[in-house]
Amino acid sequence: MDMKRDYYEDIRLLDSGPQVFWLAVLLAALAAFPLVADSYQIYTVNLIAIHVIVALGLNLLVGYTGQISLGHAGFFAIGAYATLALMLNAHLPFIVALPLAGFISAAFGFLLGLPALRLEGPYLAIATLGFGLTITQILGRLDVFGGHMGLQAPPLELFGLKVTSDAGRYAVIMPICVIMTWGLRNLTKTRVGRAFVAVRDSDIAAECIGVNLTYYKTLAFAVSAFFTGIGGGLMAFVLGFISPHTFNVMVSIMFLAMVVVGGLGSILGSVMGAVLITWLQLELARIGELPLVGPVLTELSNQVFTLSGLPNVQYVVFGLIMVLIIIFEPLGLYGFWIRTKIYWRTWPF
């Protein structure tokens, strides 16, 4: 059933009937979600949706094209600041400012793609890391962007409607997230997507069969930066306030963790990675209050560790989860998913 018989089957967006059905169910569930959830849950899902967009963009670069980036917080910051600056200073409406910010971010992505033509591995990692650090440094210096004071997001207005609640923001963010996921799936199915994969597998071989390396490597950076920039623009509104501090190195590293833990070169993986990491970041903070674990941890803190340092358990657990996932499944959560699927499909064999 996974056999592809001709080219058109390969480039089809959706493979099978059940897939269409489940997709419809998912979309319906996403549409119904704000009606049943409370505002805190919607806020969490908004954050997740933004991280999904970023993880998709980064996965395109890391998983599909085989380039590493430790500087995506830089693009995230560019997207966020550009959106707000265009709205506050140029008085553009949100619907124009957001894509424009995406394109500004993409332009920076193109620039960062240039050294990537010659660099790989740790060398590229350092170049991108430096990019991320430099961007926040420069943003903190420029008074147009509020300097180190940060910027307050203006009220979000769409087609004359004021968006003030989390459900309202959800109504803006979730469709964008869905459209971008769809767009990325589309992209990976085309010549461009296959060229990216060819570059990843062997850039020299790819060049030999006629893939223009300069074009595709910089394009991968640009598209990835575009996604991240859009994510940043939306983030500015979910948070309501941004400062250079919001976009530190740790953010870049978390993005990379989402992609790798979720599964390299897989859209479903990016989504799963973004969901898991975001959720862990928010929920692990309360690990000391869990019914059974909490008292044990408290007692342990009293005996061996310190009570005031107890919340740091979240880092230990977080790190452990990341390590275990990669140890047991190099393809990350996506690998688990594939294996489960195969297990049930071939059951009882």
Binding site: Y40, Q281, A285
Partner: peptide
């Protein structure tokens, strides 16, 4: 604990209040 991370601070404020 928000770890000085504004995303988390906002989530905490919502969680506590709501």
């Amino acid at each position: 604990d928000d770890g000085y991370n504004p995303n988390r601070t906002k989530a905490i404020a919502k969680e506590l209040y709501e």
